[in-house]
């Protein structure tokens, strides 16, 4: 046992304890193979469902293939579902007393939020990979070469990580797994209210405004641009959709700047 006293020791233990908590998430998955299967099958179902059900009815603006149009939206949807999982896990730990046990142990304090967000990132990658596979199978593909493609995925990962800190904060704030579970369905309208599945042009003005400024739309637009998929907005376009990559980066930075300190404070605050 090395003490947690020196800054270097603290850093090391934050990392080691964080890894232990990542291992914990993997261990939980191992206990629930059903969940793994569900998590892996889900993207495939989404691709098939949206690709063929909506695809049969929706006209892509510049006459492209709907499934080419859809995949960036689905990538965005998966990215934005991440914070819900983190929130539920944090809230469950908080309500079951596991969080208190962590706090009463001589472990690195920052390990819990960092471990939790790190675990989400790790478990998110295979899901993304499956989604890519499903997309390729139904005829989607990136058209602009390696670098832009990598940039698109990097954007998703950066935003996903930033969002997972929102999950940490909200989970710590609600402290109740039932409330957290009840909040999960709220994620759906949030992703639907965007350009992920349909162009925003047809929406009534106020709704279109919300959809255009929704970060889901920015991520979708950014990936369409970087993958060279159809659906690039034309005409009078809202600022976030005209500069989608910058918008996504700004969103990520803003979320991190706001929610990392908030979460750390909420986690370390004593007195309740």
């Amino acid at each position: 046992m090395t003490a947690l006293t020196s800054p270097l020791g603290r850093l090391r233990w934050t990392f080691t304890d964080g890894l232990t908590l990542v291992g914990r998430e993997l261990g939980r998955l191992r206990q629930e193979p059903g969940q793994i299967v569900a998590a892996l099958v889900f993207p495939v179902i989404m691709v098939v469902l949206f690709g063929y059900v909506f695809g049969s009815a929706i006209q892509v603006p510049d006459g492209g293939d709907y499934r080419e149009y859809l995949m960036p939206g689905l990538f965005a949807m998966v990215t934005f579902s991440a914070w819900l999982g983190v929130m539920t896990r944090m809230a469950t730990d908080a309500s079951r007393g596991v969080m208190d046990r962590f706090r009463s142990m001589p472990m690195a304090r920052l390990a819990v939020p960092f471990g939790q967000t790190g675990a989400d990132l790790l478990t998110g990658l295979p899901m993304l990979a499956i989604m890519v596979g499903a997309g390729l199978l139904v005829g989607w593909q990136p058209h602009r070469g390696l670098i832009p493609t990598a940039q698109a995925f990097l954007l998703m990962i950066v935003l996903r990580y930033a969002l997972s800190w929102v999950g940490v904060y909200v989970g710590l704030a609600v402290k109740n797994d039932q409330v957290a579970d009840a909040m999960v369905p709220l994620g759906l309208p949030f992703t639907m209210l965007s350009n992920a599945f349909v162009p925003t042009d047809g929406m009534p003005g106020w709704l279109r405004f919300l959809a255009d400024w929704n970060p889901v739309s920015a991520l979708t637009a950014a990936s369409r641009e970087l993958f060279g998929n159809p659906g690039a907005p034309s005409g009078n376009v809202a600022w976030p959709l005209a500069h989608p990559v910058t918008t996504v980066l700004l969103w990520s930075a803003a979320l991190l700047v706001i929610f990392v300190p908030l979460s750390l404070r909420a986690y370390m605050r004593r007195g309740r």
Binding site: R24, G27, R28, Q31, E32, R96, G97, V98, D100, R101, S104
Partner: peptide, 12 residues
């Protein structure tokens, strides 16, 4: 510390 509710990870 063993709190008022069993604080273990139910899934592990």
């Amino acid at each position: 510390l063993a709190g008022q509710y069993a604080a273990v990870d139910e899934k592990l």
